[in-house]
Simulated scan of single mutants.
Amino acid sequence: MDEHNSLLKTAVVPLLIYVIVFLIYSFSTACPPAVTKACGNATCNYTIATLERIVQEATHNLTSDKIHLVFEPPAPSATRSLIQTVDVDSGASVSLPCTVHNVTYSIPQQLPDIFWTQKEHFTAILGSGRFTSSGALDVLHSVYSRPSLTAPYADVTVTLTVKNVAWKNSGDLVCSQMCRPPLEPWIANMPLCTGHNQHFRLRVFPSASELFPVPMANVSVRRGSDAHLTCVANVGEVASTPAFIWRFNGYVIYASNEHPLRILANAVDGRPGVSGEVHYFPLTGISTAKSYNSGVYFYSSTATTLTSTLVVYRVDLHTSARVECWVRPDASREVWRRQTAYLDVVTTPVA
């Protein structure tokens, strides 16, 4: 009997190991492909299906050239930031409230003296009840007191409103309560009351004319020739270097290596080969074309612009293709602006 049990164990144990290995392998191969991207202190896994859904939701409105890719938000920071981030589109107005607590006044001249600076330059001042602006920004102000003007102590909020804000106005803006009324608002090293500073980070999303100095042009080529589509983007004064995404007939064919959408480009091209600053990929299966290669070139055309060029080699399309160039002016958020052009192929074959 013991010998029988021993033989049974000898046969069962390898079988169990085989079953466990088989299940692990089957589960791993059944899982959809995913890309891992660092998201703050968390790790976000995106499947190809999820990324395609994110792109579809961001581009459902074909009339809008503003693209907002919604990925998993970063993990909340344990420390509270002292900077209030304010997002606004170019051409709109934005209000920045600066609050001073427990003050008393009965006439405008007794209001707290508030001083605004941006990029360490004087912007505006409310001193002795009188508002003065440097003229660098189109601004106005308003005063709100709570609970009321006649209360012994009140919280006074002085709001600076910037009208018709421009991309170049992006950057940190600080409002401060003065320790004493300044003699002249442009004097440097004026004493500011410690602990009475409020910091705002103004992030202005540029208009198409601000971001794209040259519109992307349509291109017509003979079948079998090479096509070049060029996308030129301005580099903002405070924004990071612009990033590019290319789409061809609704498919993402290029994204930078560190961006989550890179996996969609890899899924199309099958091999993310990089040679210097040229990224090669085939467009097989995403158009009516035969198998041919494409490339994306990057070079700085000037000190203030960055250019990305899509090259389609030996074009064999049987219809026109919609080509989109997306540019992200600010690396701190996934908001892009796109411009569209069409690649038209002349049916006459190349001699």
Rank of each mutant, 00 (worst) to 15 (best):
R146C: 09
K168Y: 09
S301M: 03
A321M: 06
D226N: 14
H318W: 05
T302E: 03
P191L: 09
T132L: 09
W167V: 00
N266I: 12
A255E: 10
D172T: 15
E334R: 07
P213D: 01
S240D: 13
T63L: 15
L229E: 01
N102I: 01
I83W: 00
Q198I: 15
S90Q: 13
L96F: 02
N5D: 14
L137F: 14
A34N: 03
L317R: 12
Y299C: 00
G129Y: 08
R222P: 05
P282N: 15
L183M: 11
R247I: 00
T319C: 09
S287A: 12
V94A: 07
K37E: 12
I107V: 13
D226V: 04
S93R: 13
W167K: 00
I67C: 09
S287K: 04
R262D: 09
V312P: 02
Y254E: 09
A11N: 05
V100S: 00
G273P: 01
H121I: 05
P242L: 09
E258N: 13
R247S: 08
N293Y: 14
M190G: 13
S133P: 04
V235F: 01
V235S: 07
H4F: 13
T99E: 03
A331S: 14
G129C: 07
R271Y: 14
S320F: 01
E237D: 06
N61H: 12
P206L: 05
A188K: 11
R271Q: 11
F131G: 04
H141S: 08
E237Y: 01
R80H: 08
Q339K: 12
T302H: 01
P108Q: 05
R180P: 02
F281M: 10
G129M: 07
T117H: 02
I20L: 07
A341G: 05
R180C: 08
C179P: 03
V139F: 10
L69K: 13
T304K: 11
S148D: 11
T63H: 08
R328W: 07
V143D: 11
E57T: 15
T43P: 01
C175T: 00
A243V: 06
T304M: 05
T348A: 15
E334M: 04
A75M: 13
A239L: 10
S64M: 13
I54Y: 11
M1L: 11
T241P: 03
D226Y: 06
L7E: 08
T302Q: 02
I125W: 02
F115P: 00
D113A: 05
D87W: 00
D172I: 15
S301A: 11
L310Q: 03
H101R: 08
K163P: 04
L261N: 10
S207D: 11
V162N: 06
S142H: 13
